[in-house]
Amino acid sequence: MTASAQPAPLSAPLTVEFPFTRSLGPVQSAFLTGLRERTVLGARTAGGRVLVPPPEYDPGTAAELRELVEIAPAGTVTSWAWNPAPRRGQPLAAPFAWVLVRLDGADSGLLHALAAPGPEAVRTGARVRIRWAGRRTGAVTDIACFEPDTESDAGSAGERAGEPGADRADAPWPRPHAAAFADPVTAVTLPARLEYTHTPGRAQTRFLHALAERRILGERCPGCRKVYVPPRGACPTCGVATAEQAEVGPAGTVTTFCVVNIKAKNLDIEVPYVYAHIALDGAGLALHGRIGGIPYDEVRMGLRVEPVWTEGSRYPDHYRPTGEPDADYDTYKDLL
């Protein structure tokens, strides 16, 4: 069989989604619980700098940070960017500014969103304050966003905040704080969802198109002449492209197997069942499949099987015995 024209490329959505559970450790627990209580905590380093949000370890010295102090819920914009088309998951649905804010009493910037009517309303040095979320759970999103702080936006505060140490003498921030809260948050659940478009590649596309006609099409390596099924576009031992197509099967030999007694999530198969490696006739290696049409405890290495196709399924639903005599071990021992 020779190479045929490349069929139209296939693609399909691929969603990677999980609600990750994150245990916090003491510092992050205190900070996020603080947000729930509308309190902003920072970490004081041995050098006297106050970092917000509080890292667990000093970025400069790697020292463990444990001394927490309270910081003002208002501060000064140190940089900003206008986001005209917010993405899924970002703090605000309407266009907003990303801001780095140095809260009064802090020496580092906190990244969050600033609600503003347009980029002309935002500037570096602007005074902003936290707008708290209505429902707070102990997460960085308990800060709904920042909003302009009209009361203290006189410009002078901004300049003062720009001089390290100068603001410390006359400002009340940072304040001592015990960082102890009732019912502290010790873990957060943070769902994450990413959407991809998966394209299986040319070799697999050729294979999948043949599967739709219930043919199992491998590809032969021009070097070692082995037939790969499913084909992957390259012979993995020779490192060259495969393109010559070779139909294999439909019958094959069970080379090894296990009996599955534990129900896997997302699989609607009654246990026990047999999961087997099957070397289709003509293939250079085994593929995987379920064995049916025979009691699970009668399946054996060397059993001859053939695919059983069902409507609406891309792959054979399972393989069943052909009734031929078992294959001799020596004929398949290199195909386990």
Partner: peptide, 12 residues
Amino acid sequence: PFQQPLLAGAGG
């Protein structure tokens, strides 16, 4: 997508 799911879990 398009790949036959592993029918057996890690131990399988």
